[in-house]
Amino acid sequence: MKKLLFVLFIVFALSCTKQTDLSDSIYIYDNEYPELPAYSEWGYNTFGANYDRSVFMYSRNEIPLKVTLKENRLAFIFQGGDGNYSNNYLALRFIIPDSNVKVYQDLLVYNDSIIDLTSETITVEMISKGNSEIIDILEGELYFKRSQNVFVDDVEQEIILSGYFNLKFVMNEIPSNMSEGRFDFGVNNQNFYNLK
């Protein structure tokens, strides 16, 4: 009877699956760090990093990346959770001065570029449980290894940003470490906001 219920549950779960499209998140686990998504450049809409003894990961409930543009300051907001499969909302906002990006297609200029997070012009905020706090970066970088324009059926569809990140920081006088961070995002008008 238990087996039957299990099979029925599987069938039910499969029948409730989300639509799989470019906007969905596709988790391909990393062989070396199975709790993190493998590095990819397909626009799988995932990110993850070791966060002390836990992980900072994308979650199914949040759009993993939002990009905002306001007064020549570009913000990359990584939205996910603290810990695998948790509902503890956690986000990092990397705010970068940029006067060149006007539309999401302009993000191509970030191809193979490294943002030094210790720079005074860079602000990093951590957002959790509705609270936003600027964190002191001890060391860290945001590396856009690849920025590419994706065409689907010969129609321009989105920009894919892929790369790595890591940072050591202090928050509430407690130092923490995020390492082995990797991301693979698709950006288009759905998650690019010009706040003006």
Binding site: C16, L22, Q148, N149, V150, F151
Partner: peptide
């Protein structure tokens, strides 16, 4: 197998440093 699933998959035909064609 349900109405909200796509019935196609993506193939990448070509790729350059800044452009990919699916």
């Amino acid at each position: 197998n349900s109405q909200n699933q796509t019935d196609y998959f993506y193939i990448m035909l070509s790729q350059s440093q800044n452009e990919s064609y699916y």
